[in-house]
């Protein structure tokens, strides 16, 4: 029983990390149809923001609290610059955006190497998150519980933003019909920029969370970008609900297959399952009609 709870939690924990990495993509790729390969580097920028803040402030607890909003701003601003300088000219040209953003991701990795060096760096955990906490009598790392809680807050916040706020309505209207939105007096260009800011900002927040469970290096983003796309595509493009189910499913499958095999074999099995699933249901778990698919 203890093993089952431990495995279940490990799966959900992995799923929450994947979801946190993917939730920004569900906006920029899912809603806007932009294939942003530099999303992983926005995650990396968030992680280095946490590292830098800790270097300046010293206290691990305070720096974590400061890092979360600051990393959102850093990721958001990077996204805003990318959207305004390059992507704005390439909507409806997905292959071009893929190539250009791949190039940008390489530039950002090199920039990180130049600033922080090639070796990985570590962000110290706050004392509160250092030890285990007991869940149903099973010890689980407190940092993982924190990430799970942060993911719940981020996803709930994003859902509220999309369903209850003026910006959310504008984003959904532009996604549904750019032409009708423009002809209703809604600036689609401004809405695109704001959407990209929020989506990229969430990548920054994911970066801070990831520093709690591992080292930070210039190639951190490449570890997560494929899985993040996998979550968005398997969940159903543009669907936050689908991304939640897909992330939890992928996390649990990975951990359960890992139990009897190795991490690499488990990864292969999960990929095969996702490919087979997408053959049967190409639209993903939850289907929608977005600008990218229209």
């Amino acid at each position: 029983m203890e093993i089952l709870i431990s495995q279940l939690f490990a799966g959900l924990s992995l799923g929450s990390v994947l979801l946190l990495a993917a939730v920004g993509l569900s906006l920029t790729f899912g809603q806007m149809g932009v294939i942003n390969m530099a999303h992983g580097e926005f995650i990396m920028a968030g992680a280095y923001t946490a590292f830098t803040v800790q270097q300046i402030l010293g206290s691990a607890g305070v720096s974590l609290l400061v890092s979360l909003p600051l990393a959102f701003l850093v990721g958001g601003l990077l996204g805003l610059i990318l959207e305004a300088t390059l992507l704005r000219r390439m909507y409806h040209r997905p292959l071009d955006t893929l190539l250009v953003t791949f190039g940008v991701s390489l530039i950002l990795q090199q920039l990180a190497r130049d600033i922080f060096g090639a070796p990985s760096v570590d962000v110290r955990l706050p004392e509160l998150l250092s030890g285990p906490v007991m869940i149903f009598g099973t010890p689980v790392p407190a940092s993982r519980v924190f990430i799970l809680a942060l993911t719940v807050v981020v996803v709930a916040g994003l859902s509220l933003l999309m369903s209850r706020t003026s910006l959310g309505r504008r984003i959904r209207a532009v996604v549904q019909s750019r032409e009708l939105a423009e002809a209703s007096g809604i600036s689609s260009r401004r809405t695109d920029a704001l959407t990209f800011f929020v989506g990229s900002g969430l990548a920054g927040v994911a970066g801070v969370a990831i520093t709690l469970i591992g080292s930070t290096s210039p190639t951190l983003g490449t570890t997560y970008i494929v899985d993040a796309f996998l979550v968005v595509v398997a969940g159903g493009i543009g669907q936050i609900r689908g991304a939640v189910i897909a992330a939890a499913g992928l996390g649990l499958l990975q951990v359960f297959f890992e139990f009897g095999t190795t991490a690499s074999i488990a990864k292969v099995i999960v990929l095969v399952i996702v490919v087979a699933f997408l053959q049967i249901r190409p639209q993903g778990i939850v289907a929608t009609r977005t600008r990218g698919l229209a």
Binding site: R169, R172, Q176, A181, T288, R289
Partner: peptide
């Protein structure tokens, strides 16, 4: 805006 409700269609404008 088909996926938005009538209220949301009016509010967004």
């Amino acid at each position: 805006f088909g996926s938005l409700t009538t209220r949301e269609n009016l509010l967004v404008v």
